[in-house]
Amino acid sequence: MGIPVFQVDVIIPTQTRYLSLIGHIGERIANELDTYAGDKVQLAYDLNLVLTEATANAIKHAKTNSLKETVRILIQIEENELIIKVFDHGQGFDLKNIEPLDFANPQETGMGLFFIKTYMDSVSYTITPDVNILAISKKLS
């Protein structure tokens, strides 16, 4: 892990009305990556999507949707890597139990983690007694 060029640390209530805000933060961050050589418009969409899916997942697994319960989203931008960590206090899940998409028989659920895995380079989920952490990273060069 390198030294963050900058980082954005957001804490929201576990309510879906905040997904738009989190997604837009992802888009704005993509626009700030002056040295990114790839397609920034596409990166903006991808970060919007990945942050939306990761946050929605944390909200879905939360115990309640009370204003007291929160999800923390930490976005760190290093020189060559973007790291997203989503902290939740829900029951957690096992990434290994996530079924791959069945393209021949599409289902209404289960596409969120597929998008995260597709658009990002690494995904991990760690359960601890205090907090669960979904960590996602993408190389920027």
Binding site: L19, G23, Y45, N48, L49, T52, E53, A56, P106, Q107, E108, T109, G110, M111, G112, F114, F115
Partner: peptide, 13 residues
């Protein structure tokens, strides 16, 4: 201009 997995799921349903 933006749709996530739940939006696709709604259309699929």
């Amino acid at each position: 201009r933006f749709i996530d997995s739940s939006g696709l799921g709604a259309l699929l349903a």
